[in-house]
């Protein structure tokens, strides 16, 4: 019983972390139709910046998180203008893979040159590091925090896309970019804004999820495909799909690692193959 509860909690937390990082990529892939393998690299940048801010500058965790997201967006912005923009019109998957692998390698190299090749700690404030009493048992407070952040991300993104003028424009551009353009929607601005949101979410998820996916030199390479896989399994462009896929894959992975740790990622990728083979457009994705 205890094991089941532990698995459930860890799986949910892991799933939430996957979701927070992947959902930005999902929106981006739904809108711009590009395969971006560098998404994890942006999460890594966020983690590095948060670590630097809290360890070296001594800033509060609550300040380090938004600062990390903001700085990551600033770092990524030139990449959008100079490189990503070329890909939006280019449907050649090979070019997209190559360019985003290149960006990832460059980020890994530069990040390690600047910050050094060691594991980066993002110390938690006292209020988040202790246990938390939920009435019938104690849970690590940080886990609760991750869950809350995940839910907040989902809600905020949903409100943004469903309840704002910006969201209407995004959805119009997803449905038909050419038509949206004809109606006077500046798709290039929408793309830029979406890119920034995606990068910001990646950085946010990277920092908050650093306890589960530790920030280290090869972070961007190690998790390079995981976020892509989650997006594909959920259906590019679908927030609920990304959530569902994150939870399912988080459960498959955590359960497998608890019960049969020596199988590594076997269960995660078995689940991926099953989902993608049965739902090629993702669990909640639409046919393009």
């Amino acid at each position: 019983m205890r094991t089941v509860a532990s698995i459930a909690l860890d799986a949910t937390c892991y799933g939430m972390t996957l979701f927070m990082i992947s959902v930005g990529l999902s929106v981006m892939m739904g809108l711009m139709r590009i395969v971006n393998l560098a998404h994890g690299a942006f999460a890594m940048i966020g983690g590095y910046i948060a670590s630097y801010a809290s360890v070296s500058l001594g800033l509060n965790y609550a300040i380090a998180i938004p600062l990390a997201a903001l700085c990551t967006i600033l770092v990524a912005l030139p990449l959008e203008v100079v490189l990503y923009r070329r890909l939006y019109a280019n449907s050649d998957a090979l070019t997209q893979l190559l360019l985003t692998i290149g960006i990832t390698f460059l980020i890994i190299g530069v990040a390690n040159y600047v910050f050094g090749p060691t594991l980066k700690k993002i110390p938690l404030p006292a209020s988040l590091s202790g246990p938390f009493d939920i009435g019938f048992r104690m849970l690590p407070t940080h886990r609760i925090f991750v869950l809350a952040c995940g839910c907040a991300t989902a809600l905020a993104l949903w409100l943004l896309l469903e309840r704002t003028e910006f969201g209407i424009r995004v959805r119009a551009a997803v449905d038909n970019a050419g038509m949206a353009e004809a109606l006077g929607i500046r798709t290039s601005r929408i793309y830029l804004a979406t890119f920034c949101i995606a990068v910001g979410l990646a950085a946010f998820g990277g920092v908050v999820g650093a306890e589960l996916l530790p920030i280290e030199p090869y972070y961007a390479l190690r998790y390079m495909v995981i976020f892509l896989v989650v997006v594909s399994a959920g259906g590019a462009g679908s927030i609920a799909g990304a959530f569902l896929a994150s939870m399912l894959l988080g459960l498959a992975d955590t359960t497998g690692k608890y019960l049969m740790p020596e199988f590594g990622e076997f269960f995660f990728y078995s689940a991926v193959i099953l989902i993608v083979a049965i739902f090629p457009n993702g669990l909640l994705g639409r046919e393009h």
């Binding site: 390698f105 190299g109 040159y113």
Partner: peptide, 11 residues
């Protein structure tokens, strides 16, 4: 790490 930066830049 220089190697990674350079491969990235080359790509």
């Amino acid at each position: 790490f220089h190697w990674m930066s350079l491969v990235g830049a080359m790509l």
